[in-house]
């Protein structure tokens, strides 16, 4: 059977690329880490993949604002290949800094429905970087990365993860039209204040998808929970503990196997 090919985008300051590659391979994909300069040199390169992941890190040091400089670079050099990639029905995942990049490129929630001026990600209410685990509850049925209704547990590690909208109308549309991928919730599934919502995001938004459901960005790190022993208190839990993060990658790879393997000439 042909293999699902995934590209993990590298750039100056990106630093979660290796574990993201590992998660994709664990989920059954063939994953390559590729520097953004290579994509700019060869605009056809992206087309050889089924999944592109914008991994976490501090692209360009988060200078000016998190994800801004890399987003600017991609908008000015790679807008067309990215657009075509999405239009071809392929998958895009942004994790943490990668989510910030997708939002600042206007790709999320985007896709014609929103403008870049509508949604952004800014400093945590706490004013500082924090690493902690959060519970996440899916909010949409159309996102191919997500198993609907199933609450999951993942770590966040960021200083700028607060999703905000320009106005109430935008927020209402995100909610009612299924653009919210995940919300931060307590163990009981209910929304709550800090630290349940670690950064003060409006509507406890932890992740967004687009109108196709094939693009998702989220602040938490699924690639950091692909083994049982990555759970923060796995020593209290049984051997059957099932890592939540790997499922997001498996869902993506399965979707690509079922829908994309014919469409890609690799």
């Amino acid at each position: 059977m042909a293999e699902v090919r995934a590209l993990v985008l590298r750039a100056a300051g990106v630093n979660c690329d290796m574990e993201t590659q590992h998660a994709l391979e664990l989920a059954g994909a063939k994953a390559h880490r590729v520097h953004v300069n290579r994509l700019i040199e060869d605009k056809s390169l992206l087309g050889r993949y089924h999944i592109v992941v914008f991994p976490g890190g501090f692209s360009y040091g988060d200078d000016v604002a998190a994800g801004r400089i890399l987003a600017n670079q991609i908008v000015h050099h790679l807008a067309e290949p990215i657009r075509r990639f999405i239009d071809d029905g392929k998958l895009v995942l942004g994790i943490c800094n990668g989510f910030q990049v997708l939002v600042k490129m206007g790709v999320l929630p985007g896709n014609g429905a929103f403008k870049q001026e509508h949604v952004t990600i800014t400093y945590n209410d706490s004013g500082k970087f924090e690493d902690r685990w959060v519970h996440l509850l899916p909010q949409t049925d159309r996102c191919v990365f997500i198993e609907p209704q199933r609450q999951i547990y993942l770590p966040v590690a960021h200083g700028e993860g607060k999703v905000v909208t320009a106005d109430a109308e935008t927020l209402e549309r995100l909610k009612s039209e299924g653009y919210i991928a995940y919300k931060y919730v307590g163990p009981d599934g209910e929304e709550g204040p800090y630290p349940i919502n670690p950064n003060g995001s409006v509507e406890s938004i932890a992740g967004l998808t687009d109108s196709t459901g094939r693009v998702m960005g989220l602040m938490p790190h699924p690639e950091r929970f692909v083994r049982r022993t990555q759970h923060p208190h796995w020593t209290r839990l049984g051997e059957d503990l099932d890592p939540d993060g790997i499922k997001i990658f498996r869902n993506a790879v399965r979707y690509a196997q079922e829908n994309l393997l014919q469409s890609c000439s690799a």
Partner: peptide, 15 residues
């Protein structure tokens, strides 16, 4: 401790 990313690289076993 929380201000440090102690989980990047995905290798943490005892945090």
């Amino acid at each position: 401790i929380r201000q440090y990313d102690h989980e990047v690289q995905g290798g943490s076993v005892v945090k």
